[in-house]
Design a protein around this nucleic acid. Sequence first.
DNA 1: CGGACAAGCTGA
DNA 2: CAGCTTGTCCGG
Length: 580
Amino acid sequence: MADPRGGPTPVPRVVSVVPDVPAINKEFDYLVPDHLAGRVRVGTVVRVELHGRRVGGWVVRDGVPPRAGINLRSLSRVTGWGPPSDVVELTQWASWRWAGRRSAFLRTASPETRVAALPPPAWGAPPAGGSRQVLDEALAAHARRLVLRLPPAAALLPVLLAAAGRGPTLVIAPAVAAVAALAAGLRQAGVPVAVVPGDWAQAAAGAQVVLGTRAAVWAPCPDVAAVVVLDGHDERLQQGQAPTWNGWVVAAERAARAGIPCIVVSPCPTVELLSWGCVTVPSRSVERQGWAALEVVDRRRDDPRTGLYSARLVNLLRTSGRVVCVLNRKGRARLLACTGCGELARCEVCGGAVALDPTGQLSCTHCGASRPAVCLTCGSTRLGLLRIGVSRAREELEALAGRPVGEITAETSWQPDAPVLVGTEAVLYRLPQADAIAFLDFDQELLAARFRAGEEALALLARAARLVGGRERGGRVLVQTRVPHHDAVQAALLADPSRLTGPEAEVRRTLRLPPWTALALVSGQAAPTFVAALDGVEVAGPASGRWLVKASDHERLLTALASVPRPGGRLRIEVDPLRF
DNA sequence: CGGACAAGCTGA
DNA sequence: CAGCTTGTCCGG
């Protein structure tokens, strides 16, 4: 169309928009009307008309050449600020890396409520200190991928202050409690902090430190100079639902794209972390001081019938202040046997083991069938508790300790005010500190049928060591086990995590497990069709409705997953599963 | 996701 | 063959 006044034809401004509709993983082009022109950029949250209805969405590309033959609609309105353009690009990479929908990542990267305007930026670095020099040297020696192995009781604030001294810093931690504590510490040191998601607008405007849980890795952070991940080994950095993205992996990619350092701090770096970055280790004495004294109770000589309580445990219960006992089994008893005929209590319907529920009935953990506590073979009502749970342990511990014992599991919301507590590993995440921690049956962790069992066990010991404080605070961690020489136990005992990761890396190599290979779990109604079409990867399964896809590296795995068109129906792809 | 539309089924 | 259900396709 020629301009009637004879001037050059104005080129219409066109943007690509990803709609915020879970089932659509596609970009659509829209015209930018003149009255919105100044408020639209890559990342902006907009509303658009799609197929007759208005939906939200994100501008992901600007200056798109208009394609002939398509009658474009205009953007309906601008909702507000969205992720900056570098993060928008990162979401595209992430949708490939975790075989997920772009909108899932864009939503995580956006403010929870509409942000119409930004406040003034909040800059202000802390005064240069001793830690700063240590960090600078480590970064100079190890380039941009740094794994900082700091023991559990080590203070993390100095690391953040050192990083913030070099420029605006993005920090992620696994849990809300740690985020709140660090934010308070930084503010006390005079460092302006934006805690996301609440302070998203401040983060977008600019702040010396942008801080939050794993989703904060998607937060805006203008002029970011470093990304810091705290407790990089923690499984909570990985999202549970698909796409199963992992905070430290995103942090590493974001930093690499920005050409800035990524610093991952952990008392017990995983073999994945070690294969990614260069590890910096404190002196032997500093690391030893930062782990708690570990008491390993070797139960190999003990009669299996003496139960969960060694003499040293009883002593700990009676002499220490606040004692926390960890037993990763909920309920009263998970396995029972008839004291008369010795038969195991099993389910009438499916034959599986039955557990004792709070009402005194036996209920099946597989099919849910319930029946009275009577032996099916001889009719006796006297059933022995072979594998007790937290509820029963609480009663027995109370008798042994001679003082009140409280119970905490993932379900209990309140916190009992008893000197001794027993619970599943949820207790370790619920309490701020303790004087002593006892793992009643640590073999359950050490020998779990999961490929990360050893690392998970060491992470629990690290968590416990942090709760009781380092050696100087006199906190104690007691571990009851029949595998006292297990690498995870030895690593915590000697305050040397490489005792575990060294052999662990070799085992993983032999078994062709990550980080030497890349895995994905595929499940859902459409999974059979999908996995049948995969090419260039190994497919195993199905095992309980799930297929395991294995490739020599992520590049090959994700290329294969991306090259098969998604069939209709439900499909869940879990890249880098934590367990399978 | 949700509307449009085509194909398939039913009853008169 | 109208009227309805079910399934597949596609959106700028």
